[in-house]
Computed example of a mutant assay.
Amino acid sequence: MGRTRVDSTTHIARRMYELLEPICLVTYLADECNEEMAALGHRTYWDGYFASRAAPLGRVPAEVVHAAFYSFAEGEAARHIPSAWETIPPEASLAARERGSVASLRRILGDELADSAGLVRAADLITKAARSAPTEGRVMYAGMRTLAVPSDPVARLWHSATMLREHRGDGHIAALVGARIGGTQAHVLSALDMGIHPAESFGRIHHLPRKRLDAVMDRLRERGLIDADGHFTDAGRETKQRIETLTDELAAPPYDALTPVELDELMTELQPITARLVATGSQ
């Protein structure tokens, strides 16, 4: 039996996620971005993270950032927003994030890849896709769309990959909301999906108060998504898979802007770039 259009589009979206995510991860894992943020005056990693990632939304209150980011526990955004912007303009944090990310990519890729015709072509094609999707219901993506696209090919590749990451993230949040899975609950399901047990030890949530984590786990047990020992039930695995499948479906529209030939070309040109980044852990 042939592959349906939905199967095809979700396959494309998943493959593009695999190819683009290592490009975006340098922002969060490599040293250069942290160094740029520290040089600006941000006191901690999370000050720089919230200040730069939320900046495309404008000077919105912490409650808006909390809603847009979704996966952070109550009160975490408020520890950094708006205080991180009081002495450092959002635009400065945005520029520092781009400088650091581009410097990381150039260091990891080396001149051979960073200055290659293949990277230039990949940057052009990914920008075409990233600028094509509707913005309705995509808060973080819409914020990124308001920013100017850099002229430097490496910066353009990073910028447009990050734009698509936020587009995918907005869709993932929609899938989670539809499944009635809260942000901390989503981290629990992700931890279990990665084989982390107990899920409460996962790095994104282990710092939360024990009482809060217990309440999250109890709610998942009440819904039959995890068992008494904190492992997935069949219903939990099915719920997680439905969320991921819908996330892929919702992430597919940008790639409709590319012809089949362009899409194949983009994937081909991205492969050596992604392979180099994966080999270093995007660090």
Rank of each mutant, 00 (worst) to 15 (best):
R145L: 11
L263G: 08
E166Q: 15
G195T: 03
L220C: 05
H231L: 12
L189R: 04
R165E: 09
H159S: 10
P56Q: 15
A73Y: 02
L57Y: 06
E91L: 12
H11Q: 14
G178W: 02
T87D: 14
Q241T: 12
L19T: 04
H187K: 13
E36A: 09
V139L: 12
A142W: 03
L263Q: 03
R43V: 04
L19A: 02
P254L: 06
D170P: 12
R145V: 09
E21C: 03
H42I: 13
V60F: 03
H207Y: 09
R53A: 03
P150H: 03
E238L: 08
E166Y: 15
E18I: 10
P82F: 07
R212H: 14
A251H: 12
S71K: 08
D229Q: 15
L270A: 04
V139T: 06
A179I: 09
E18H: 11
R180G: 02
D111Q: 15
A78K: 00
P254D: 06
R99I: 00
D111R: 14
T44G: 01
G224T: 03
E98T: 06
A67S: 00
I23E: 03
D234F: 07
E98D: 15
A39N: 14
L125S: 09
G195F: 08
P198C: 06
A191Y: 11
G203C: 09
R5Y: 05
L94Y: 07
L266A: 05
V278L: 07
L213T: 10
G203A: 08
G178T: 08
L29C: 03
E74I: 02
T184D: 08
M163L: 14
E262F: 06
V60A: 07
G100M: 02
P90W: 09
A251W: 14
I108T: 09
A155Y: 07
D248T: 10
L246F: 11
R99S: 12
P153R: 01
P150N: 02
A252H: 03
E265D: 12
Y255M: 10
T239S: 07
V120S: 14
L225R: 01
P82G: 01
R204A: 12
T274R: 01
M1N: 00
D214Y: 13
T146S: 12
E74P: 00
M16P: 14
T280E: 12
L20T: 00
E136V: 15
A55Y: 05
T247Y: 15
S116L: 09
I243W: 06
L109D: 06
A51C: 06
A122F: 08
R79L: 09
A67K: 14
G169V: 13
D31N: 02
H42A: 08
R145E: 08
V64E: 14
G137S: 13
Q185H: 02
L25A: 01
G48C: 06
L25Q: 01
E136L: 11
R212I: 10
Y255R: 02
E265Q: 08
F69A: 13
V261F: 11
P22V: 00
A73S: 01
D264H: 13
A84M: 03
P22M: 00
G171A: 11
R276E: 01
A92D: 14
V120M: 15
S151W: 13
Y28P: 01
P272K: 01
A199F: 03
T44D: 01
V139H: 04
